[in-house]
């Protein structure tokens, strides 16, 4: 990390990059604060950890045509950048990618729920987090499911932070396969139990790099796709239509789930997209920046012949 910081400082001083986008510690140790600087002296403040919650590619839209921005990205976040590149939204030459070795990402709100106490300090010890020097929690239990089914990226970074890639093992999509076995009414019961507490705060939308529409379908009055209330039907309409818009684009980065203050297991939905994409089309979204966008190409051997 120190070597990388030195290099970033030099790049800023020499004007090779315009600014650096990353995280600095916040008043809550379980979630670092997103921070942007153009000042070389600020570079030392950046921190890289499991407690970096949002996916920084989301913030890139604020820097359109502003010059080259350096940002810290985990593998799934690099994939998100790749999708935005293939969609023509971001130019590769406008970003300077700092590769981050990943060990999974912690959902701060899930951690809070688990320890049920105010969090004053966190310390990572192997596969556990020691909270307030007293309570030990398995990382696995406080990260989104998406981290367990993480897919690889064809690495294309400009600089890399040393460190072992300790991503939680690439588990099979067993939870998704189990979910598939449920009947429609069991699925609805599951949604009722887990999604009913959604407040429609849209943190999951605002944090998502793929949700870059200026005006979201849920905010449309005419036509009114989704009513503004909190019935389960409205809530699920939002989430399921969002998923349609994510198909082949979402890289299962889990940022939406980590941003959700209500601890809704959103990455189950996104993992389902990833699972279908891989199983039926052998496609991994954002694997690199050169593959075509999923819905932008077809092959003769694809299932279904409606398009031929």
């Amino acid at each position: 990390m120190e070597k990388v910081k030195e290099e970033l400082k030099r790049l800023l001083q020499e004007g090779e990059i315009k600014g650096v986008l990353g995280f600095v510690p916040s008043s809550s140790p379980q979630k670092n604060r997103v921070f942007y600087t153009e000042n070389p002296d600020d570079v030392s403040r950046f921190t890289v950890s499991l407690f970096n919650t949002p996916n920084l590619t989301t913030y890139l839209f604020r820097f359109k045509d502003k010059g080259k921005i350096a940002l810290f990205l985990r593998p799934c976040e690099q994939r998100a950048l790749n999708v935005l590149i293939s969609e023509g939204k971001i130019k590769r030459e406008d970003v300077f990618v700092i590769g981050v070795p990943c060990q999974g990402a912690v959902d701060p709100f899930r951690l809070e729920e688990q320890v049920d106490a105010e969090i004053n300090s966190v310390e990572v010890k192997d596969d556990k987090i020691l909270v307030n020097n007293a309570i030990s929690v398995y990382i696995k239990e406080v990260m989104p499911y998406s981290c367990r089914v993480c897919e690889d990226v064809e690495e294309d970074v400009d600089i890399k932070i040393d460190g072992e890639d300790k991503r939680p093992s690439h588990e099979e999509y067993s939870k998704i396969e189990d979910f598939d076995k449920k009947t429609p009414s069991e699925k609805w019961a599951f949604f009722k139990e887990t999604f009913e507490r959604c407040t429609r705060c849209y943190a999951c939308r605002e944090v998502c790099p793929m949700c870059y529409c200026e005006q979201c379908f849920v905010d449309s009055y005419d036509p009114l796709w989704v009513e503004p209330g909190l019935s389960l039907q409205d809530i699920m309409s939002y989430h399921l239509i969002k998923m349609y818009h994510m198909a082949g684009r979402c890289t299962n980065c889990g940022a939406c789930e980590r941003a959700c203050p209500e601890n809704i297991p959103l990455s189950l939905l996104t993992s389902m997209l990833a699972h279908r994409l891989k199983r039926d089309f052998g496609y991994i979204s954002g694997k690199n920046g050169t593959q075509k966008v999923f819905l932008g190409e077809y092959h003769y051997e694809d299932k279904g012949d409606f398009i031929k």
Binding site: V34, F35, Y36, C201, Y202, A203, E206
Partner: peptide, 13 residues
């Protein structure tokens, strides 16, 4: 205010 994502979480609580 740079870090703000413009979600509604804070306004709701």
């Amino acid at each position: 205010v740079f870090s703000c994502l413009n979600c509604g979480a804070c306004t709701y609580v």
